[in-house]
């Protein structure tokens, strides 16, 4: 395990050969001489396997100290991926976020073996559920709740659909929780389950839930998709499930897929078959346990006739 390395040994490796973070679909070799990056890796990836130095990685990323006066005063860190990339320096206190964003950039722009949904993905009973959602809809919070309730985490951010096998591929990384969802998950999981809070980030306050050990251990195990569920947290809706009209579900998924237009007709055909073959639903809830029940029921049993018949209605309690 990476945590078998002392912080000093880890930093030495980050400065020389780099360290490989193997998340399943993607292996990333990370280089850095910023101590806070070593701290982030120990905190979030300590239970990941320590890969051999000659492991072939998909990507190489660097996290370098800011230049000029920023080397000494109000230190910064900036990600690099070997080609021009849109990273601006962050304060070194939020180096863990820079690490995650740089890795995300590589997945979103280069992992074109996969059709990349903007969604969380989890698996149970050998069936994967895809949870797409824009920021603020509750996707990551629900993902964290499922991942700590018997569902196997595939990804909090990117659903990787293998165009050749038709399976979802894990990309197991920490779950990024923001603002109010941090308190919700701390209350649910207890103090100490999450990383230290990162304040004043571009997304507000952020904390990471490390990927569960089982998800890390099984990070190469694919699963067939079984349902697409758009989650929506609403304080006044106790429980609501509707089918999502499939053409609307398809265009929403297309719009959120990072490499959809680049993959062209192959992506359209894959997405069309994907949507046509599985239940596509919207759910609304104000309690996570209710949402977990609904997800489980839809994945195992599909949608009821009433939920399909009321597809066009608003989600209400």
């Amino acid at each position: 395990m990476i945590a078998d390395l002392s912080r000093r040994s880890l930093l030495r490796r980050l400065r020389s050969d780099g360290i490989v973070l193997d998340s399943g679909a993607v292996a990333t070799r990370v280089f850095s001489r910023v101590p806070e990056v070593a701290g982030a890796i120990l905190s979030q990836y300590g239970h990941y396997p320590l890969m051999d130095g000659d492991t072939v990685a998909n990507y190489r990323i660097g996290l370098a100290p800011g230049g000029g006066l920023r080397r000494f005063y109000r230190k910064q860190v900036v990600g690099s991926v070997g080609v021009p990339a849109p990273f601006t320096p962050f304060p070194v206190a939020i180096a863990p976020m820079m690490l995650e964003m740089t890795m995300n950039w590589c997945v979103a722009t280069r992992s074109n073996r996969y059709l990349i949904f903007h969604s969380a993905v989890l698996e149970k009973h050998g069936k994967a559920v895809v949870l797409p959602g824009d920021s603020g809809q509750g996707k990551s919070t629900l993902c964290a709740a499922l991942a700590t309730s018997g569902w196997r985490l595939f990804s909090d951010e990117f659903g990787l659909f293998d165009l050749q096998t038709g399976m979802m591929m894990p990309n197991v990384r920490p779950i990024s929780l923001k603002n109010a969802s941090i308190d919700i998950m701390e209350e649910r999981l207890g103090k100490g389950a999450l990383s230290q809070r990162l304040y004043d980030t571009p997304k507000g306050t952020v904390a990471y839930l490390p990927a569960p050990e089982e998800a890390v251990a099984r990070r190469m195990e694919q699963a067939p998709p079984a349902a697409v569920i758009f989650p929506f947290y609403h304080p006044n809706i106790e429980r609501a499930v509707r089918a999502y009209p499939k053409a609307r579900g398809l265009i929403t998924l297309c719009g959120g897929a990072a490499n959809y237009e680049m993959l062209g007709a192959a992506a359209f055909r894959a997405m069309r078959d994907f949507v046509d073959s599985h239940p596509v639903a919207r759910i609304a809830y104000n309690r996570l346990d209710t949402a977990i029940e609904m997800v489980e029921r839809i994945v195992l049993e599909g949608l009821s006739e009433d939920e399909v018949a009321t597809a066009d209605r608003e989600l209400t309690g």
Partner: peptide, 8 residues
Amino acid sequence: YEREGEAV
């Protein structure tokens, strides 16, 4: 892709 009268 056509379903329920709508299409993509």
